[in-house]
Every structure is written in structure tokens, then in C-alpha cells.
Write a protein that binds this DNA or RNA. Structure first.
Lengths: 153, 153
DNA sequence: TATTGTTATACTCTATAACTATA
DNA sequence: TATAGTTATAGAGTATAACAATA
């Protein structure tokens, strides 16, 4: 691809696509998702699943709904995520003794093992993805994204 | 939020969600999409549609496939986008005289008018969305996103 | 009555395959 | 044969509504 969107004039014309925040966020996100998927494929997993594992890998195990809250997904969405983890023997549902409505999700040994390997891959992938940026800019980017992700406007 | 992910230790623990590039990109993108949708709703449009209008508002009108290429979507996806624009009388298909297989997409007067108003809303929305950031950081963020969106790894 | 997990269902977004009309 | 647009269809991803078990 050439694309070559000239950064020429301020232009009376409506901002070119690559100047739009919405377009940029969407496409960078897409590009990273692809990059990440390619890097994690050899481990038989993807960024989504690894994020779920990471959330569940706390000292105090979470119920499905608590995990859903941290992931920012609906509890009905969480069901399928846990189903998949269980099917791959990466985690298991345990009825909470304290409140028998709740499923406590426990990572299995292989779940923790996969998470550990995936985390190494993730760190490498992020580094490579950000490589086109000068290091200080990469740090500013990360900090800015953290700020914008948290902002509760 | 506190989070305070010290860049100190490599950390044995799996990075918290808000430290993950994938999570950050996804959630910032989602937040911006919501913000943008809310701002454009009074105009009866959304960021997606405005992006399509912006692409089509060139001096030399584009065919559907050319527009699809610039938007980064499939030509089959483009069909529905143009359908919607036509249904709202914002654009119209004109058979290309040069190559009768092609549809040239022409914006109507009201299409250009909507685009103009939407662009003002977009600029204001972007400014407000980035307001939590120091101005220099906002500029670095934009530049970094442009770099990462373009990088052809 | 309210909450947790579940299922069924639907909606959005997008792509692949196959058709048509042109070239 | 190849290309532009179209249609039908299917696959993610996610949410809403309703239900069972439990509180």
C-alpha cells in the first residue's frame, strides 16, 4: 500500500481521515489486535483470553460477575468466556460456599502457565508495536491512553 | 483511579488491565465512539457516516470501491454505507460514463451541509475529549497514533 | 424481592462466495 | 477473463429479556 496522505495544507476541506481521532483510534486498535493475535496464535490463545486470565489471576479469586465488571463486559458475555476457559482446562468454576449463587473462578495450573508465557509474548509484542515511536513519545502515549481510558466525563 | 503502575519492576504479576496496550486502545476507542455519537446525535448522524461523507467530499468524486479503499472497509460493506447515504439524500450514485461498471458517489447539497456542521462538532468533541491531557501530550498522542496507524509492519 | 448465573434471542459490524453487468 | 457493484449468508461480539437457584 502507498496511501501517502500528504500532510500539506490546513485545508478548508474536511479533515482527512488520518487526522481524525476516531479513525486513528479505531485503526490503531485494529492493527494492534491483529499483531497481538498473530503473536499469541502459536500459544493457542488470543489477547482477549489472556486479559481474562490476567484478571482472574489475583490472590483473591473473583466471581464471574466481579470478573465481568473488571473486564468491562456484561455478565452474560462472561459466561461464554468462562465456558471457553473451562473447555480448555485453563480455569474452573467453583460454587462459592459463602454465597451459593456465585461461581468462583479458579485458574488451573495450565491456566497460570499459559498466562505466564502469554505475558512474555505480550510485553515483546507491545515493545515491537511501539518501536516506530521515539521512546519518550511511547511513554507519553501510554500515559495519555491511561488518562483517557479512566476519564469519567 | 489509583493504579499507579510503577515502571519499576518487571513484576512477576501479570500486568494489570490498565497497563495493557490492547485494553487501553480498545477502551479509549470505545469511550471516544460514545462521546462522538452523543455529540453528533442531534444532527441525526454519527462518526462513521461523517467519515464516509468526508472521504467522498473530494474535488474528484470517488467510485464506491475507491471510497471503500480509503475507509479501509470491504466493497460489500461500502454498499450499505452508500445505501444509507442515499436513503437520507446525503449522496447519490451516478453511473460512471467512462466505465459503466462503476458508481460515482456524489454528495448532495444537504450532504455537504451536514458534513460542514458535523466537522465543527467533531473538532469541538475532539478538543473536549483530549482536554484532560496537557496540550503538548495531546499533540504527541495524535502524532503517535498517526505513526502507528500508518506503520506497515 | 433481589441477585447470580444461565439460556435464548437479537442486533451490529463485517467478511466470503456467488451473481450481474459491464469491460 | 477480470472488475464493480450487489445480494445472500455467516461469523464475531455483545446486549436484553426471561428463567432457575439462591439469598
Amino acid at each position: 500500500m502507498t496511501s501517502s496522505a500528504r500532510p500539506g495544507q490546513p485545508s478548508t476541506r474536511p479533515g482527512q481521515l488520518p487526522d481524525r481521532l476516531g479513525y486513528l483510534l479505531k485503526h490503531v486498535q485494529l492493527r494492534y489486535a491483529e499483531t497481538s493475535a498473530r503473536a499469541l496464535a502459536p500459544l493457542g490463545t488470543d489477547g482477549r483470553e489472556v486479559a481474562v486470565l490476567a484478571v482472574l489471576a489475583t490472590d483473591t479469586p473473583l466471581s464471574q460477575q466481579e470478573a465481568a465488571g473488571q473486564l468491562g463486559v456484561d455478565r452474560t458475555t462472561m459466561v461464554a468466556l468462562v465456558d471457553d476457559l473451562e473447555a480448555k482446562s485453563l480455569a474452573e468454576r467453583v460454587r462459592s460456599p459463602a454465597d451459593r449463587r456465585k461461581n468462583i473462578i479458579r485458574l488451573t495450573a495450565s491456566g497460570r502457565e499459559l498466562l505466564e508465557r502469554a505475558e512474555r509474548v505480550r510485553l515483546r509484542t507491545e515493545r515491537e508495536f511501539l518501536a516506530p515511536l521515539p521512546a519518550p513519545d511511547a511513554r507519553v502515549l501510554l500515559a495519555a491512553l491511561r488518562t483517557l481510558a479512566a476519564a469519567d466525563d
